[in-house]
Design a protein around this nucleic acid. Structure first.
Lengths: 186, 186
DNA sequence: AAAGATAGTGATTGGCCACTAACTTAGATT
DNA sequence: AATCTAAGTTAGTGGCCAATCACTATCTTT
């Protein structure tokens, strides 16, 4: 039961990803996170300076993990083969929806906090995103247009999954014949 | 000052789009919406059954308005020309960010409410979205893959704008040479 | 075994917020 | 001018929630 502060922080981040993914920043109580961790609510504030910091940590972890999945899936591959491997891996990644929704929550939260005046979280998010983009680009082989297309289809996948379109729905039809055009999705 | 209930509802929806876009569902108080309308907060509950209903109305309006912009921009055009016109119009649309962020807020809220058990808002959102897709497809000329690509780039635009990447940023580079590949963005 | 440090809890608080109930004002109709 | 109706307000309530404070339990070191 008892563990080091660092280990606890780790499990808080994992729990926070799940809870924030579901409820967003404002819709998630620190109580809910603490309950999931199995720890008292006030203790969170010993591990993190505040709720905002927990969210930021979860968001950063979320993007990192995306790269981890891409990296594993495309290890040793390049070009089109790498893109296809990463696309397939991404479809699997969004399947469990926590990763996906945490991503979306991050996007809206960045905007909200920018409106509120503080853009720290946005600064961090942009950096993480750009790094992810560059890593994917490198893995694919340096093609900027191809990488952009890769992410474009990824963002559409995000939207359709978030909206709850089942994979059999005809809205997904445009993904089927896509290998022919060399985009690497599906 | 005094106006009919229907007119008031209209201005509530417009105010709600702005406020919900910034704060999301949970992060927006009915107080804030009422203040923007210039009316007392309890009066909102005479015009709408509850906060949720206000959000739903704003979300639906948001998607409708997107089509209105597409429709105007591409009137009389077909195929590639229509796609290009709509793409350009979309870049303008997301410029003022309210439309864009309301869209994103809708996506995360649909997921959240699905998790919470009620999928009514999701049902409505999927219908609106599919209709938008079909309308665009029809305007473009029936090509499913092209329409999918159109929306894919649209969703990437959403993400990059939400994250706050300025248009000069290199992350946008992949959009530049895009006409060559026949996608119609920028 | 004592002492110091680190992990963790219970109780509380001040503030916000969705929603209700009861009342008031403005405009049209007779 | 009186009346009816629809627009709008003031006051209030119960519930939730981030953060703080003061405290306890467990481990480690000497």
């Amino acid at each position: 039961m008892r563990m080091s502060a660092e280990e606890r922080r780790e499990s808080v981040i994992r729990a926070a990803m799940i809870e924030f993914a579901r409820g967003g920043y404002r819709g998630t109580s620190t109580e809910a996170i603490a309950r999931r961790v199995g720890v008292s609510q006030p203790y969170l504030f010993r591990l993190f300076p505040g709720k905002q910091a927990i969210f930021t940590a979860a968001a950063e972890r979320c993007i990192e993990e995306t790269w981890r999945v891409f990296d594993e899936a495309s290890e040793g591959l390049t070009g089109e083969a790498a893109a296809e491997a990463m696309s397939e891996a991404y479809m699997g990644l969004v399947e469990d929806r926590e990763q996906l929704m945490m991503q979306m929550q991050l996007y809206v939260s960045v905007f909200a906090s920018r409106v509120a005046g503080e853009d720290e979280i946005g600064e961090a998010a942009r950096q993480s995103w750009e790094r992810l983009f560059e890593r994917v680009r490198e893995r694919i082989g340096g093609d900027v247009n191809g990488t952009t297309e890769f992410f474009a289809y990824g963002m559409l996948i995000n939207t359709l999954v978030a909206l709850g379109f089942p994979r059999e729905h005809r809205i997904w039809d445009g993904f089927d014949k896509h290998g022919e055009q060399g985009d690497g999705v599906e």
